[in-house]
């Protein structure tokens, strides 16, 4: 997408800075920081425009905030804008994760570090469980949704099927079922 006529141009350095901020601040989920940087601090988008962009990024596959860096970068500055936003978003987290990985590799055989990581991993699993319950809760009211969720859960967690085949069968089936019930 080329920058639309009349749309304000944002300097590449500014795009880089806005996404760099999101990358370094985003502990435990980057989305609140994306909203803060893009809407509140820099005013690149109105709250409504941000929600609309988020809906697009959630509709498409892939990491949501990374898709957002692509969509915003291309909207304001075309391909150079995408590169500025993407590198801004990923540079610091990539450097930090590699540093943490090196530290972990140095220390992983230490019994104290092993115990710390066993506990950290159990706590992180609990976080994912909480996320899963939050996502599942609104579905309870609709039996069809509960059934579809149960199928995808069973395919992956119980039968341990590959995701590609599961999605190739389940996604069209779910679309068909939802379409039939809404007709």
């Amino acid at each position: 997408m080329q920058p639309a006529a009349g749309q304000r141009r944002i300097a590449l350095g500014e795009l880089f800075g806005g996404f760099f901020y999101i990358g370094v601040c985003g502990f435990g989920g980057v989305l609140p920081w994306a909203r803060r940087s893009i809407v509140e601090l820099r005013g690149w988008l109105s709250p409504g425009e941000f929600n609309d962009l988020l809906a697009l990024c959630q509709f498409l596959p892939g990491p949501n905030v990374i898709n957002m860096s692509v969509a915003l970068g291309s909207r304001f500055r075309g391909v150079p804008g995408i590169i500025a936003c993407f590198i801004g978003l990923m540079a610091a987290p990539l450097a930090i994760i590699i540093a943490l990985g090196m530290l972990y590799t140095q220390l992983e055989d230490d019994p104290v570090v092993r115990r710390a990581f066993a506990a950290l991993a159990a706590a992180a699993s609990g976080m994912v469980l909480a996320t899963a319950l939050k996502i599942a809760a609104p579905l309870r009211a609709r039996p069809l949704d509960v059934g579809i969720a149960a199928l995808s859960f069973t395919a992956i967690a119980v039968l341990r099927l590959p995701l590609l085949g599961t999605m190739a069968v389940l996604a069209p089936a779910a679309v068909l079922l939802v379409w039939l019930t809404r007709r």
Partner: peptide, 18 residues
Amino acid sequence: AITPVTAGLVMAAAVILC
């Protein structure tokens, strides 16, 4: 249609990690 599919997948991720 995709929303409940992904809800089941996230639950699967949580159970396998736990």
